[in-house]
């Protein structure tokens, strides 16, 4: 934590932009992260990160592109839609993690130009032998499509409720609830939570429930066998998603605030 805090003092946006092409590859990687966190609104940042999406020098042993991954993540945080067309191109990158970061960022940028490019990726849910993920980043794609409000994606997401990977099933239920507001999907997540023996998985589930905005989950979040900090964050995100639909605080929203108080 301390390093992250002392970092900004050592860099300016102009230096970080310059570092994106520094001979030391680790400085490039750090600069991309730094710009995503501190570069909002600074001149030249977005074009420099877009250029980094085509970097050929920073490679992993397996052929991955670490700098491209970080640049794609940073562009999602900066909220500048200039980044949308180049991020769409990244959905074809041979590196899974670049595609995943691009899908996440396209969801965060909320630009519907991405939709026709995201939808076909839902067909790539088959597992890849020897890798911990499916052929395409279907979790990130579902979350992005839900954020973009793409209801026509729902039938394919329903199929993914049966996927072999629990995290894919969870992302499907969460995204389906966001798109359809059908309580069936919220209840699906609650059932998974009630039966989940692993603490780490329960923590992730709470965050999924929070992101779904399924307000009846509030009591179950409070009752879950998980540390208060996770419950507190999950309830906050539940309320945020709810406030997007109901900007004036509803009585149910007030109830969530009461539950958050009890977790302090």
């Amino acid at each position: 934590m301390h390093d992250l805090q002392s970092g900004p003092a050592l860099l300016t946006p102009a230096q970080a932009v310059a570092n994106l092409t520094h001979p030391d590859l680790s400085l490039r990687y750090y600069a991309a992260w730094w710009l995503g966190k501190f570069g909002r609104g600074e001149a030249g940042v977005v074009p420099a990160l877009v250029a980094a999406l085509e970097d050929e020098e920073d490679r992993t042993e397996l052929g991955g592109y670490p700098l491209r991954r970080n640049a794609a993540r940073a562009l999602g945080r900066l909220g500048d839609r200039q980044a949308v067309p180049p991020l769409i191109l990244c959905l074809d990158c041979p590196d899974f993690y670049v595609r995943e970061a691009a899908a996440q960022s396209l969801g965060a940028l909320g630009d519907s130009r991405a939709v026709p490019h995201l939808l076909p990726l839902l067909n790539g849910s088959q597992l890849v032998p020897g890798r911990p993920h499916p052929a395409q980043p279907v979790e990130a794609v579902m979350v992005a499509l839900a954020a973009l409000g793409v209801r026509e994606a729902a039938p394919q997401m329903v199929l993914l409720l049966e996927h072999a990977l629990p995290r894919v099933r969870r992302a499907a239920a969460r995204s389906l609830y966001q798109l359809t507001q059908d309580p069936v999907y919220g209840e699906h997540l609650l059932q998974v939570l009630a039966q989940e023996p692993d603490l780490k998985a329960r923590r992730t589930l709470l965050l999924d429930l929070g992101a779904s905005g399924y307000l009846p989950a509030a009591e179950a979040i409070v009752a879950a066998a998980v540390e208060n900090s996770f419950k507190f964050m999950a309830l906050k995100s539940l309320l945020e998603t709810h406030l997007q639909r109901h900007p004036d605080l509803s009585p149910e929203g007030v109830k969530v605030l009461g539950l958050m108080d009890r977790l302090l």
Partner: peptide, 10 residues
Amino acid sequence: DQVVRARAAL
């Protein structure tokens, strides 16, 4: 933060 604003308004 909108949630803090909502809590303070309560």
